[in-house]
Nucleic acid binder design. Structure first.
Lengths: 355, 355
DNA sequence: TTGTAAGCGTTATCAA
DNA sequence: TTGATAACGCTTACAA
């Protein structure tokens, strides 16, 4: 069939497979891509030949001929962030299952050059992680206009047409968390916030306020702020919790912006003579690994990085295939552990004991 | 010239540039790739046309036509490691400068599938990070035989032909460190090792021993071992240093396997009533960020992650272009800071003081 | 010095 | 159901 078989070639080409199977090279494509059904007998011959030659279609050639490269990109301002790394892994794992590959960039480099690379290499889609906007709207549009699907974190400061956005369902999440505390009998619930009110991309604080309003009506819950420069460390949790306990000793439950701070809050509470959860309950957000093994283990709002990353792939993939775009909300889940318990019966008693 | 200009096309193609410049499409290639000199006038016309159309050659097509994809891969067992991330950034930055892009994989996934991807996508080269051997020799050979340049960490358990290896020059580094201590008058020098003698991929311990032998002759220096399971934390540094001070109070200088442990060692020394560097000098390895700002700042053997990463790119790039392979040794540099000083004059006096 | 044309390994269209 | 054949956008001999 084929007049020039590559004898020295390391890798088998489609034509080689066709020749071994005794069919046309088009037939090979049809069988392997399942793009057209041929006779079972022919299909088997092709499959056998492909296996025999260890044939794997060349992605480069496929990309040139087809319209997709099966390549995505993940762009973030901070690769080193633990949670971010989980998200990346989750996305990569899911991508790999579907024969996609993910470029990972951290925005510390020359963002403009990255964009250029993404376009010349024709990636199918890109995810742009949380604010602040290290990738300008202009560059985002350049990507979009180059026919690359863009999925951005919801917390970007602007919304662009034909760009998709993703967010965790913080509002529902906080409803779960605060609702759970309410069920346990808590009414005095405080919040430890890393960010102050002016931080436009923090959705957690407003979500907390809304949940409190909906479940307890009007009234301002006690909140401690970390302020600028923003950080979300365990140390900050300790500092804010200590402040909270002295300023608002009536509080019997605390929600913290993330697990690290919640862990710090527990330490601070214990240092101040409060037992967790007997005297005070603590809830975190993120469900980081250490939250499951801390003493006491931490009740937390789960947005597993891995699952989130997998979701990112699914959304991008779907948008690419269907040519769609939209705003996507990913549900969160409250993981109940040891750091939460029923509200103490007698608040006065507890305060007396402490003195 | 060109009979069918793409009017609707988003991106300019080479032919478009040729047509605007009034030359053949080959001329465009020659000028842009500097692969052949044309007349200055033609060159200018091409350059102008390219700029006008914002022309950027399609990497996919270049890859198919040419022999290189300008794509590399970095494979590691642990993305989350801080030092590793620095290396990755260093490599990526250097790669980007040279119009290369780097795939990043962590070996937690399906390594075999990664390899398949790398082959079908025809990456030019791959770096495989430190032991243990998460990537089997078999897969390594599959990559190599697919004409992909492989650069592996020196600490792999086996050496394969036509594969390149890279290592930091620990031997020279320890000669610098121990030599510096000798200059300062130290003779009793101890070592804090995370690994025990059986760890085949730890080059630091043998490097320390060799340096001691060369500079001080025979005799066994005092060494404390962390043992299995291997870890290199600050906590371990504290533990080993405490042990060292009680078992070998005559020691006036310490080298630790890495900066984290060295930092722990300083804390332990101070806790035991020893001043650093007046009573005891401490040297670390790695030059992590915090080593520069600790109190006292840490003298350390520098193998900057960024520089190392850049080096990885350079080596791979060169091996790819030249078709070579080899074993590469990257120099280290001793950064002298506050944690080292002249040896105490009177050892007896110091020990007495302490009692 | 410049242009022509044959690949590169696929996909996909269109007759046979 | 199958087999040619034209893209895809570029590199690179080779010819003019």
């Amino acid at each position: 069939m084929s007049q020039k078989l590559k004898t020295t070639s390391q890798r088998a080409r489609r034509e080689d497979v066709a020749s071994v199977a005794g069919v046309s090279s088009a037939a090979v494509s049809y069988v392997l891509n399942k793009t057209k059904r041929l006779s079972p007998e022919v299909e088997q011959r092709v499959l056998d030949a492909a296996r025999l030659l260890n044939y794997r279609p060349d992605r480069i050639a496929q990309s040139l001929a087809g319209s997709r490269t099966h390549t995505l990109a993940y762009m973030t301002a901070d690769i080193a962030n633990t949670y971010q790394l989980e998200v990346i892994k989750g996305m990569q794992t899911e991508a790999l299952k579907n024969d996609y590959i993910v470029y990972i960039f951290d925005a510390a480099g020359d963002v403009k050059k990255y964009v250029s690379h993404l376009i010349t290499r024709r990636v199918d889609g890109i995810f742009v992680s949380a604010a602040p906007d290290f990738l300008s709207d202009e560059l985002l549009c350049e990507l979009r206009d180059a026919n690359i699907k863009v999925l951005a974190d919801f917390s970007r400061s602007t919304f662009l047409p034909d760009v998709s956005y993703i967010m965790s369902d913080m509002y529902d999440g906080f409803m779960q968390a605060v609702g759970f505390l309410k069920e346990l009998g808590h009414t005095e619930i405080g919040y430890l916030s890393a960010f102050d009110e002016s931080c436009y991309y923090d959705l957690r604080l407003p979500a907390f306020k809304i949940a409190m309003r909906k479940l307890f009506g009007a009234g301002v819950p006690p909140i401690e702020f970390g302020g600028w420069p923003y950080s979300t460390s365990e140390t900050l949790g300790i500092r804010l919790m200590t402040k909270m306990l002295s300023e608002h000793p009536e509080v019997t439950a605390i929600v913290a912006t993330n697990d690290l701070m919640a862990l710090g809050a527990i330490k601070a509470a214990i240092a101040c003579g409060r037992r967790v959860p007997e005297d005070i309950s603590v809830i975190g957000i993120d469900n980081i690994d250490s939250s499951a093994v801390s003493k006491p283990s931490l009740t937390t709002l789960d947005q597993s990085g891995n699952r989130y990353g997998a979701k990112i792939f699914e959304i991008l993939h779907n948008d690419i295939v269907a040519g769609t775009s939209g705003k996507y909300i990913v549900p969160m889940r409250l993981i109940k552990r040891e750091s939460t318990g029923t509200a103490p019966q007698n608040v006065e008693n507890r305060i007396l004991l402490q003195e």
